[in-house]
Amino acid sequence: MTPILETRGLSKSFGGFFAAADVNLAIEPGIRQALIGPNGAGKTTLVNLLTGTLPASAGTVFLHGQDITRLPPQARVRLGLSRTFQINQLFPDLTPLQAVVLAINEREGRSHRFWRAVDAGREVVHEAMNRLHEFGLDTVARERTADLPYGRQRLLELVLALAARPRVLLLDEPAAGIPSGESGEILDAIGRLPRDVTILLIEHDMDLVFRFAERITVLVNGRVLVEGAPDAIARDPEVRAVYLGEEAHV
């Protein structure tokens, strides 16, 4: 099968320091893949290279076989590469409903319409409510986003990324900041993500990774150390040494 997201020799250097060095990834369609690595391994840099927030120093990124290395972030989103952020990136003054409508309007290329009211796009509002309902946010659809509890905001972050109807979704530490006792809701939500969306999970939390991932890539010092099935990774002595070993100390 052709990979849906692929990188070849992807590198990023900051004045001689390689935050990402010769990264080769090939992610199968529909898979749940996790990207793990100790702090400073270059996970964030890699995400930024994939989304286009940072320009690559060398190498190529392919989405569905198309070279997207030089495309700006928003063009990549329109091609089906969407993301969530480690730190919530929401619209505090808008309601969840407005935010999701906004996201759908962008996807449908309706955001330049300036004469008809937002509410006139009934099917958009309808879809937005459905999407909110799916994640149990329909009850707060018309409250100010800033007034929602953090866990709810975290879910909205996910809904917004999904509203772009992505083929590949990058989840950047989706449970970040949620106390482990209360993370059930978000874990459920991730578990229920549709199968036709390929997921690349960037995560610190090993429980989360081993619960969802079907394949794991370990990044160390900007390089791919090893890639494989979860049980193979768990057994890998090298991984245990550099990563799991370190975790055990904490």
Binding site: F91, Q98, V101, N105, H112, F114, W115, R116, V118, G121
Partner: peptide, 9 residues
């Protein structure tokens, strides 16, 4: 309009 909402965003 959708454009106005987009600007607020």
């Amino acid at each position: 309009s959708p454009f106005g909402l987009c600007l607020r965003g």
